[in-house]
């Protein structure tokens, strides 16, 4: 039990996908201009990341085995893309409201490198299925947390008096760097 809690804390804070592992930076920079949009993106990614981690783990364990390690990246991409597609169809039919909220961000997740990176890390570190799901979920929570915080910061930055040279992406990069340094403070809290 304590082990699982450590995994969760470890993936959300200590080894945060975006700020410590530096994965999934494209949505982190691209979808953080408005808080609402970032919440939609965070929700969609959280869902796909958890499901994708579990499915990729199963594919690796029962389909590929130790002989076909070189197929990992390829097969994971196929599986994740299929999950995203399936999720989109399902939501469009069953939860039209949620589908509208997520909008374009749902299909965009396929190109999020964190969604591929976390399953690859999971199989390399040889976890079991429950741990894999937990790491996927923790990674998703970490991603969502950082994305939403960052979007909030950027909204405030819009009205701040930033020197002309630093306006726009430049100050966003610096902010992200400072946030990353702040998250480094969690190092050592859990593995």
């Amino acid at each position: 039990m304590e082990n699982y809690l450590l995994i969760l804390v470890g993936t959300v804070f200590v080894n945060n996908v975006v700020l410590v592992r530096i994965l999934g930076l494209c949505p982190f920079m691209g979808v953080s201009k408005r808080l609402e949009a970032s919440i939609g993106m965070a929700l969609a990614t959280a869902f796909v990341l958890t499901l994708g981690s579990g499915a990729s783990f199963l594919v690796d364990k029962y389909l590929l085995g130790p002989d076909l390690i070189f197929l990992r990246t390829l097969s994971f991409i196929v599986v994740i893309a299929a999950i995203v597609q399936f999720t989109e169809m399902y939501l469009h039919k069953q939860q039209p409201l949620l589908y509208q909220v997520l909008g374009i961000y749902l299909p965009l997740i396929t190109t999020n490198c964190a969604v591929l990176g976390i399953p690859l890390i999971i199989v390399q570190e040889r976890h079991n299925l429950l741990e894999a799901l937990l790491i996927g979920f923790g990674g998703a929570v970490g991603f969502s947390l950082v994305l939403i915080i960052f979007a909030g910061l950027r909204e405030r930055l819009e009205s701040a008096e930033v020197p002309a040279i630093f306006r726009g992406s430049a100050i966003a990069m610096i902010t992200a760097g400072l946030m990353s340094i702040a998250f480094m403070g969690f190092a050592g809290l859990a593995k």
Partner: peptide, 27 residues
């Protein structure tokens, strides 16, 4: 050949699932 077979099988399976979903969840 195992690698090929596995990838083809995976693609076929996922294709079938998605094709079924497209009919089942048609909006």
């Amino acid at each position: 050949s195992t690698a090929l077979l596995i990838m083809i099988g995976l693609a076929l399976f996922l294709g079938l699932v998605l094709g079924y979903a497209a009919i089942k969840f048609k909006v």
